[in-house]
Amino acid sequence: MSGKLIIHAAQGVLTVQDLGRPGHLAQGLGRGGAMDRLALIEAAALLGQPAPLAAIEMAGAGGTFEVSAPTRIALTGAPMRAQLDGRPLLWAAVHLFRPGQRLRIGPAEAGVYGYLTPAGGIASEAWLGSRAAHLTIGISAPLAAGDAVPLHADPSPQDPALRLDVAPRFAGGELRLIDGPQTPLFSDETLAAFAQARFTRAVQGNRQGIRLDAAARFPAEALRQLTAGLASDIIGPGDVQMTGEGVPYVLGAECQTIGGYPRIGAVLPDDLPRAMQAPPGAGLGFRRITLDEALACHVPEAQLLAEARRRCRPLLRDPREVGDLASHNLIGGVIRGDEHEMEERAR
């Protein structure tokens, strides 16, 4: 039986996102899709799906939801305070969501983008092979109160709920950077200063990219010798564009396909979720690695999924991990209210 996910309130910017629509670069259409692709991979692992499904991407905060048919849901990405009929839900885990229940997802406690993935997948109409909203070109719009998202039926709602310890990536940190075709436009001194600099994720940022602030500026010195200017070129997610003033922007999933600003390098795709999940004010820095190093340490998405699947474990907590056993309700995946805080402290 299929059903729908009803939005009673949207607190953050809620959009349907999947892995996007690659293959249309020559027509000026970027891949788009989820800002944290790893969160969709983790959801697929938790739900036992062979490939990532479309999810509700929740920027900044979630909302209030109801379903018309029982479905498991995976909650992944930026941890948000989630309650089902007032009962706290563990993040990075699967929960059964039944008709009549209210799911409330509050603001992100760390990171930016949380994901709600219904187990059967979202059944909204695809455009060019993807359900992903692409807001800047008018493909779908943010979900609002009163909207109902059609769902495919959960193939196995009675499957035991799973949880997953995820790679922390919600508070900034180090990003590995590989040289791009325009890196030589920057002097060795600028490249060295860039690698040494400590950046702060600025308030300016959206699905197209994020601005990074630092005390110093990092201009592309060689541009001055180009009398006819720099030809615009193909750009993509992860590219680090430098404005004329020398302020870097890391491009996001919904960036344009051609840009005129020089790019100092590109964030390794493996580190892009960390970049995009860094909330305003978080510290970020870059470590320049060679292409060979990048190819050697890169983990393809299929392998990420296989590894995440192996790390999934039952949502029930192992009693040996729990000091105060008496206060825990170990029945049916129900958890104690302060579970989330315990998770946070354990990190």
Partner: peptide, 13 residues
């Protein structure tokens, strides 16, 4: 990037 090559003839248009 990891999945791309660029054939370029000049930096300026």
């Amino acid at each position: 990037g990891l999945d791309g090559l660029l054939v370029r003839f000049h930096l300026s248009p």
